[in-house]
Amino acid sequence: MVTPRSSLLSESDPTPVVGEPVVEVRELEVSFGGRRVLRGLDLEVRRGETLVVLGGSGSGKSTLLNALTGSVTPSRGTIRVLGSSVAELDLARLDAHRVKVGFLFQNGALFQSMSVRENLACVLREHTALTAEEIDILVKMKLELVGLRHAVDLMPAELSGGMRKRVALARALVLDPPLMLYDEPGAGLDPVSLAGVDRIIATLGRILGMTSIVVTHHIESALRLADRLVFLHEGTVVASGSPEEFRTHGDPRLRQFLDGAAEGPLNDRSGREDYATSLLGKERLR
């Protein structure tokens, strides 16, 4: 049974204040080597909202996140994030933009040559004028938030997969970005670690008013985290709504995805070449 979002938060956590749009994506198209990954995608995320992006592999979820950070250049359309048109930013402004957007990588992507402390401290040293003592306190506070204050002097290689993900989360939050992007936060985590990470994500929106976009394959996690969900298929949004609306949504592709059915419209092969033709070639079959 899916735990509702309210159960992730304590009664004292304030309710989210959903405000003006923080992310506005219009008719976004992104292509790689002639292959269109995003095809006219429209999306809007408001301040304080947690939007969960669902979709099969190759549906364009990670590309969407990369487009929001300015790591990929769109071939068409507009992306406005925190008031800036991302595609039009020069390098210096793009750097300033990225500081305001926290990014949790799928595998954590910790700096392997640095200790846990240094992973967080180097980001603070780079972008703040804090003293070494202040940085040390902030590092410990952020690690406490993810329950890993005791791991401050460990190296990334000494951490388990779940711990690595939580340290990466603490690092992504170290500058208190107004917008957080999570790429598969639950990948490779056991159910207990996953619930812990979900709780942190849910709490951040309430306490810090942080806006979050979460890309995930975990249906349970998605339904308990989201204020709103979108379902991507072949680079466009085919369904959008609240968790309640998603549970009863009529789109057959979304239904197959939520039910985890092996056969259905998501793997429709009717448009593909016949297996025998593909295997032997037209000449041999003639």
């Binding site: 300033a96 990014f103 392997q112």
Partner: peptide, 21 residues
């Protein structure tokens, strides 16, 4: 290996120049 494991992208995502570090 850093490129493959997204470590280089992580530097960029924090606006830290990998060429510097």
């Amino acid at each position: 290996s850093m490129k493959v494991s997204d470590e280089l992208r992580a530097y960029e995502s924090f606006s830290i120049a990998p060429t510097r570090y």
